[in-house]
């Protein structure tokens, strides 16, 4: 049985696409047959982050409209054999996503793949609700600031009422929290919400804490999922996240600011 995972947040710019790319790559590296789908029809960012933008011929909407079959649209990742990308269309709008069409594509994918990662667009409109409708698991990406936490809370409300599992009274979607862009220095100085502050409001299963890191931007610009950068803190944190998602017990890292030594202070300021 394949599992459908939606990466969602409500708010934009919190790291959904970065997380989708990292999770999909992490699962595939562990030998799981994985496909990652870009639901952000009209904007299309996932292919850039995955570094496959030049190989897009057919897209998700073509498959939904039966203008192309799945094999024509799926792009195999060059770094990992188990990973495929289903890109979004840039020339259509989100209204092109029909519930039946999405359901049919997901059904077909679930014959072949272990994990289907759905990269949701921001907002709570049609595109976002389509991305989460068929989900089994949801990873709610949240930044440690109040508006992001509020939007995530709203998203959780929608997840528990407007998904297929809610409508058919099946077991509810498993919900996980991923805190991104976490800056322990700013948390210690009281400028940023702490993990505990966020958990007091959301009270979710914490899947990981991704520290604010320059490596994320560098990796995105280079079209390499940041999880492949094993030297960076963000890459390691995403590695931990994948392990936790698969049920391993991994302690949370990058929670506290590193004490700067005298030398690093002198050289890095």
């Amino acid at each position: 049985m394949s599992r459908i995972i939606v990466i969602t947040s409500g708010k934009g710019g919190v790291g959904k696409t970065t997380t989708s790319a990292a999770l999909a790559m992490g699962l595939a590296q562990r030998g799981k047959r994985t496909v990652v789908i870009d639901f952000d029809v009209g904007l299309r960012n996932l292919d850039l982050i995955m570094g496959c933008e030049r190989r897009v011929v057919y897209d998700f909407i073509n498959v939904i409209n039966q203008e192309a079959n799945l094999n024509q649209a799926l792009i195999r990742d060059k770094r990992c054999d188990h990973l495929y990308v289903l890109p979004a269309s840039q020339t259509r709008d989100k209204g092109a996503l029909s519930k039946e069409g999405v359901g049919r594509v997901l059904e077909e994918l679930s014959q072949t793949y272990d994990f289907i990662v759905c990269d949701s667009p921001a907002g709570i409109e049609h595109g976002a609700t389509m991305a989460m409708y068929y989900a089994d698991d949801a990873i709610v990406v949240t930044n440690p600031e109040v508006s992001s936490v509020r939007d995530s809370d709203r998203m959780l409300g929608i997840l528990s009422s407007k998904s297929r599992r809610a409508e058919t009274n099946a077991e509810p979607i498993r919900e996980f929290l991923l805190l991104t862009r976490y800056d322990p220095h700013r948390v210690e100085s009281g400028e940023m919400l702490s993990v505990d502050d966020v958990q007091e409001i959301l009270a979710l299963n914490l899947l990981g804490i991704i520290p604010e890191s320059k490596a994320v931007l560098t990796a995105s610009n280079a079209g390499i999922p940041v999880i492949l950068d094993r030297d960076s803190d963000a890459g390691q944190a995403y590695g931990d996240m994948v392990a936790r998602y698969l049920g391993e017990e991994v302690p949370h890292r990058f929670l506290h600011a590193e004490k700067k030594g005298l030398l690093s202070r002198l050289f890095r300021g």
């Binding site: 809370d153 409300g157 528990s160 009422s161 599992r165 809610a166 009274n169 509810p172």
Partner: peptide
């Protein structure tokens, strides 16, 4: 939010065991 989270015992009384978002 689904039957799993909201239980209506008899008619009036209602119990919600999951967070109200």
């Amino acid at each position: 939010p689904g039957v799993a989270t909201v239980r209506r015992i008899n008619s009036g009384f209602m119990l919600v065991t999951r967070p109200v978002r």
